Amino acid sequence: MDIGVGSAPDGTQAEKVHAPGGLPAVPPERSGLFRASRVPGTGKGVPRFDHASGRPPDIAHVSQARRHLISDPRVNEQIRISPVRLIDADGEQVGIVSLDKAREMADQAELDLVEVADRARPPVVKIMDWGRYRYEQQKKAKEARKNQQTQETKEIQLRPRTDDHDFQTKLRRARGFLEEGNAVRVVLRFRGRELRRPEVGVETLERMLESTKDIAQVEQLSKRIEGRRLVARLEPLNSG
């Protein structure tokens, strides 16, 4: 490689770099050190380390691309290792065959070849309808998330001399919460002279616990009046 002298746009002389044979050298910014490698299936490139500036590539970008690559098994032409242990579309063990043979059988069945155990040696592949299988798996995961319940703690407040109509209303609310799979915190509050006869409040609280014992269990119960109140926590029987 030789170094010549040329004219820069501002009229000053600038060095020209030539590769052997008189051809211009490839500028550093266009060399392989700066190119982005393509990530299959993402439509994006992962930038390599910038040796000129010393800056690493966008780590979040790289991590996202790698997560994409490992989220699904290798399918059809993505499978590289041969031989493979083949399972046919009916779930029957075919045995160890070459990768070309496995692909040929998948083509004959008009289905896909999916790598189901990449860490096994030889890797295990199965003939299946990959699009349909993936759709069913996503549907099952969606249903599981939909059916998964996050338990909440609801609160019911009582007074020592709660009248029967009010008590029945609050009892229905408590039972409704429990049947939905939620915990219920029953708080009985005393005011003023009501503390002179705490047994009245205890009887009201015990009545609530007795009226829900068929669908709930007492997980926590105050042993004494604290802060002018008694507290009981109920858990639905089917919560476990």
Rank of each mutant, 00 (worst) to 15 (best):
L209S: 06
F49I: 04
T150L: 11
V26D: 00
D2A: 14
A60S: 08
A144K: 10
A232K: 10
L69I: 04
Q168E: 04
R74N: 00
N147K: 13
V46P: 01
A141R: 11
E219H: 13
P57Y: 07
G91R: 04
R233Q: 00
S31I: 11
L111P: 03
V46Y: 05
G91K: 02
Q138G: 15
L237T: 03
P160V: 12
K126D: 02
A183W: 09
L230I: 14
D118F: 07
A52P: 09
G227F: 14
T212R: 06
H18K: 04
K213F: 14
E203S: 12
G192E: 06
P123Y: 04
I81M: 00
E29D: 05
W130M: 01
A183V: 10
Q157H: 07
A117C: 11
A52E: 03
R196L: 12
V62I: 10
G201T: 12
M1P: 11
G41C: 08
V84W: 03
I87V: 14
E92F: 11
H68M: 07
A232V: 13
R159E: 02
P57C: 08
Q138W: 15
D118C: 09
S239Y: 12
G22M: 05
L234T: 05
T169D: 02
I59L: 09
P83V: 12
R74K: 01
L171H: 11
K146P: 00
V46C: 09
E155L: 12
V231L: 02
V186G: 03
N76R: 04
G22E: 03
P57M: 00
I3G: 13
A120G: 10
L111R: 00
Y135P: 05
L195Q: 12
A19T: 08
D112R: 00
G6K: 13
L33I: 08
R103G: 00
P236L: 06
K101P: 01
G91I: 00
R161D: 01
Q13P: 12
T12C: 10
A216M: 09
D58P: 14
Q13R: 14
E180H: 12
S98L: 06
R67C: 10
L113A: 06
L237D: 02
P24D: 09
R85I: 02
E206Q: 14
R189G: 10
S222P: 13
E199K: 15
K16W: 15
E194I: 10
D118A: 11
V125Q: 13
D58T: 12
E199M: 13
K16S: 12
L221V: 11
R233H: 06
L237I: 06
D163M: 06
E180P: 05
D164P: 05
S71M: 12
K146N: 13
V84Q: 04
S239C: 07
G192Q: 09
K44I: 10
R207G: 11
G91P: 03
S98K: 04
M128V: 03
V124P: 05
F190Q: 03
R228D: 10
D2T: 13
P236E: 09
A232C: 03
A216S: 05
R229E: 13
P57D: 03
M1I: 08
